[in-house]
Design a binder for these strands. Structure first.
Lengths: 251, 251
DNA sequence: TGCGAGATGTTGACATTGTCAACACCTGGG
DNA sequence: CCCAGGTGTTGACAATGTCAACATCTCGCA
């Protein structure tokens, strides 16, 4: 939604109702139980933990996020409707407000879930590639694999639907973790003498920006009728990025 | 006030929705081939008869685009409301439908106007920098100057609000022109022996993706916490991109 | 010159959507 | 056992994009 004070009529003071939307949103120190998806994974089988009471859902919060992820994946963010999410879960349209402050908060949770999976994907690509040049390329390929396999989810993470800083400090941390994988890899490559010296953060931003940029251009159809196939573009880009990153060959 | 020179670029046949009952499947606007794209900022001999009647606006189409650009620049795309655009121009909320098929079409026009100014900015940076390495860096800086000066407009151009191919063939052409400046520069640099051989398209995508990625990350606040100032990131990125592009030093 | 067809603009209406308020239900801890 | 509060429900509302029907203006042509 708007990052600006709603132009519409002033919001009434949130009278007693609004339970702590900031409480569970960020990092609820009390309930570690509500936090139950540490690893990658897209869809989750029904929790089925508590025999659903027909009134209390059991784990509505996570179910809402999963449903939102599913809808977004299938039909895009713009098609996401709170009412439909509720209906899909056999729950009224406003049940969601017991778990999220508003639609943006739901999107933030969706983004956070994406960042966790994303981080794992990057890490996997780096490790699996052997943590050298091949690991770097592997990480890059994993980046594109993720972005192109879940373009809509990726857009929620990076498309400015959620303003991280303002919205959810936890989300910013998740995003930071994903970046951390990249920054760590660069530091390691520097240690191996494969990558030039320099602030790993700045170099990491270079790498991230390049991959992110190509992913976004591809997702948004900006590369439409270029005759070069996307795979080739990815390959060229990763090669060029590596060359831009590599230790200068004569010093 | 619009952010860009109010160019009343080539008038095309009005694409407004035709509500005529007999509308034969789209009623293709004849003579769309005569479309031309003058340089942004250029003023076509506009219909001199301005404010003529208070009923007919004179040049509502361009006024709508300008107003949309202004609102978007001031308060972001999400704050853009057709009703408000109309009200600002002293025109009813649906007057717009005589000139645009829907809101997306208006955004497409906004994007197209942005692409023209963008192309000119890139060209200017390239020329002004002397069409060598300095020109390349100048073009890159111009890129960021534009994106950061008009972040919301930039998002409309690149943020997937408009799906180019489907929406407006003209828009795709405008975007292609902007990219063409970059591709042309690369070709020229190859001719000068400064840039490695290879498909200029693919190399151009590499450069574009890198700059676009950093611009997007910056605009969407993804770099928030990093202590490295943005200027430094830009400088590092352009240097790295150039190195990745430069002729391999020993082959 | 006069006129009618189409371009341009207006008002009314509607479905959709996010969100709030007030209320109902359920569950766990004293 | 009982109630405080978490969880879910219905009703309502304002904002918005868009359509339909209508009003007004302009220009090309007879």
């Amino acid at each position: 939604m708007s990052q600006f004070p709603a132009s519409s009529a002033g919001r009434r003071p949130p009278r007693g109702r609004r339970r702590s939307p900031a409480g569970p949103a960020g990092a609820p120190p009390a309930s570690s139980a509500s936090r139950q998806r540490p690893a990658a994974g897209e869809s989750v089988p029904a929790p089925a933990k508590k025999a659903r009471n027909a009134y209390h859902h059991g784990n509505l919060r996570q179910a809402l996020v999963d449903q939102a992820v599913a809808t977004i994946g299938a039909r895009g963010v713009e098609a996401l409707t709170l009412r439909e999410v509720g209906a899909s879960l056999r729950v009224s349209r406003t049940a969601l407000y017991r778990h999220f402050a508003d639609k943006t908060a739901l999107l933030a949770a969706v983004a956070a879930q994406g960042f966790r999976a994303f981080r794992d994907a990057l890490q996997e690509g780096w490790d699996h590639g052997g943590r050298g040049r091949a690991g770097f390329i592997g990480m890059g390929r994993a980046y594109f694999r993720f972005a192109l396999a879940h373009p809509s989810h990726y857009r929620v993470m990076f498309g400015g639907f959620v303003t991280k800083a303002a919205c959810d400090p936890g989300l910013e941390a998740e995003a930071g973790d994903a970046f951390g994988v990249l920054a760590g890899a660069i530091t390691e490559l520097q240690g191996q003498g494969l990558v030039r010296a320099g602030d790993p953060m700045a170099l990491g931003v270079y790498v991230w920006a390049s991959t992110h940029g190509l992913a976004m251009l591809a997702i948004d159809g900006q590369l439409g009728r270029k005759d070069v196939p996307l795979d080739a573009l990815v390959a060229v880009l990763l090669d060029r990025v590596w060359d831009g990153l590599a230790r200068s060959p004569r010093a």
